[in-house]
Amino acid sequence: MIFLKRQLPLAITFVMGVTFAFQYYIPHPVSEEAITNVSKWMQIISGFALALGLASIFHVHAVKIKRQVPGWGYSIVLYAAMLATIVVGFKSGGETKVDGAQTAFGWLYDYSMVPLQGTMFSILAFFIASAAYRAFRARSPEASVLLVSAVLVMMGRVPLGQFLLPWTWDITQWLLNVVNSAVRRAILIGVSMGQVALSMKIILGIERAYLGGGKDQ
């Protein structure tokens, strides 16, 4: 069992990791055929992630309902909405439109999912305004720099600000293109170096957390 649980996955990871790291630099037809096939495998495996996610969400909310944790009623709503969508989806054959006419599934998408998601996102504006009023204070020199930059960018990114104080446009462009880019680039390089190091550790079998934490690990 330990071979299947530990040595085989480590061997597969090592072989595939090394092979496809080198594949990138080998434009031979055999190498190209290999990446074509493997990318198709990866797509199929990604498809399974959906089924896994569905099973996981069912399990998490079943436990909540069983234990009647606070807010368990919402889990029932989730179950009802999800099952209704699945049933309607199957009945409509997964189609949102048939011969230009909207199906029940398409109706669910257009008149429940689209407005619900839009509403969730749009109420952020209200909370951001409230949070900005309470928390955006010049308590320290760093906070003051952040505050001034934010006000300038908010002015420079809208026509009214550009109209009243035209110079905020240039300052905003400079802040985004120079200061922001430099800082973001530093963060990106740091994160990327970390990703390379982690990938190397996984390929070489040093990092094994992805194998799970069974007793026989």
Binding site: A129, A132, V151, R157, V158
Partner: peptide, 11 residues
Amino acid sequence: SATHFVIIILV
């Protein structure tokens, strides 16, 4: 534009 200005004034 108006929303940005309200937030700036509030801040």
